[in-house]
């Protein structure tokens, strides 16, 4: 599994396309049988408790893409705080199992773990 993280509009989706995945293989914020899951954070903002059950399903994916949401001011609502924590924690777990972890910065892939192509 490849984990791709990064801020909003940092170039995550372009990087997925560069890996050879056409848009029809990219599931946007929904867990189905497509090999790429994009916008993982949306799933956790819908249900902050869902991290543990998502984890196993995500390990089966070829690519998981998640927006980084933890580098700002602590959110006002308890729901948003819980979701933000859940996103960070699930990404830590996924990164541990991933073959490749990439963080996008200004459209540039920064390899945090493994070897990029």
């Amino acid at each position: 599994m490849i984990l791709i993280i990064g801020g909003l509009a940092s170039g995550k989706r372009d990087y997925v396309r560069q890996l050879g995945y056409e848009d029809n293989l990219i599931a946007d914020g929904i867990l189905d049988d497509r090999p790429v899951l994009y916008n993982l954070q949306d799933l956790l903002f819908s249900d902050p408790e869902s991290g543990p059950e998502l984890y196993q399903a995500l390990l089966e994916k070829e690519v998981v893409v998640c927006q980084e949401v933890g580098s700002g001011v602590i959110p006002v609502t308890a729901h948003d705080r819980a979701a933000r924590e859940a996103v960070g924690r699930l990404c830590n777990h996924l990164a541990r199992e991933a073959d490749l972890v990439v963080r996008m910065v200004c459209g540039l892939p920064v390899i945090l773990k493994g070897r990029g192509s």
């Binding site: 933890g70 602590i74 933000r84 924590e85 996103v87 960070g88 924690r89 830590n92």
Partner: peptide, 8 residues
């Protein structure tokens, strides 16, 4: 440093 729940 790092964001929230980043493993710090």
């Amino acid at each position: 440093t790092g964001g929230s729940a980043a493993g710090k």
